[in-house]
């Protein structure tokens, strides 16, 4: 038996919004540690990894590890039936083929129960090593979303150059060129507005904007985004979900011809 309860459906709705354009089907792995999901997009260019820790739930019961194979589009549609303030319970039997989603209004006067058919999915899992990165940038997530969107008007790729104290995001295309320079904040009252740039060694890498724009669908989950970059390894774009977990996206740099 698996059963968990979150006080607000909003966070799970936003999590589904962050995933559904990138992946069509995925497996939620349920264990005593919480819920986790890992999946490549259909073209195997990027990888997304989600962790929702047990401690962030109101209640969490998992008698034995189970894998819930879901169609992301279906799950997102059902999640949309919940109001943001509803509390939400997810429930499944150990060998069941259904996931129950129960939404309860804050005043307890309305309870909605949906049952979603589960799928038997065999999804390749990859081991993601912990590693140190040459540079880590933290910035307002809305600002990163804006930069990716704006540079998409110019070209298909963004070149990210990180040096001490700042970052250049630049794009080239048939119509012209663009460069956006973001400087590290010197003094910030509100932490979520801050830009911080940690540089062990400067980097200069190029990434596909198409995928970065998919990743920024997670913007409503967190005021800040972190970009971890090293030469010749995938970029990590991470959104922390307060008190609950994170959504992390991985994208390999484009290579020179």
């Amino acid at each position: 038996m698996f059963e968990c309860r979150l006080p607000k459906a909003e966070v799970l709705k936003k999590t589904m919004d962050a995933l559904k354009d990138l992946i069509k089907e995925a497996v939620w792995d349920v264990s005593a540690q919480g819920l986790s999901l890992q999946s490549m997009d259909s073209s195997h260019v990027s990888l997304v990894q989600v962790t929702l820790r047990t401690e962030g739930f109101d209640t969490f019961r998992c008698d034995k590890n189970i894998a819930l194979g879901v169609n992301m589009d279906t799950m997102q549609k059902l999640m949309k039936c919940a109001s943001n303030d509803d509390n939400i319970t997810l429930k499944s039997e150990d060998n069941g083929d259904l996931l129950s989603l129960i939404f309860e209004s804050p005043n307890g006067e309305k309870t909605s129960e949906y049952e979603m058919k589960l799928m038997d999915l065999d999804i390749e899992q990859l081991g993601i090593p912990d590693q140190e990165y040459s540079c880590t940038i933290k910035m307002p997530s809305g600002e990163f979303q804006r930069i990716c969107r704006d540079l998409s008007n110019i070209g298909e790729s963004v070149n990210i150059t990180v040096v001490k104290g700042g970052v250049d995001f630049s794009a080239k295309g048939d119509i012209g060129n663009a460069k956006i320079h973001v400087t590290e904040s010197s003094n910030v009252d509100n932490e979520k507005d801050a830009v911080t740039v940690e540089v062990n060694e400067p980097v200069n890498l190029t990434f596909a904007l198409r995928y970065l724009n998919f990743f920024t669908k997670a913007t409503p989950l967190s005021g800040q985004v972190s970009l971890s970059i090293s030469p010749d390894v995938p970029l990590v774009v991470a959104y922390e979900i307060e008190d609950l977990g994170h959504v992390k996206y991985f994208l390999a740099p484009k290579i020179e011809n």
Partner: peptide
Amino acid sequence: MPQPSISSFFMKT
């Protein structure tokens, strides 16, 4: 510029 697959960077488990 060519785009490498993400699976070439991580070990299969």
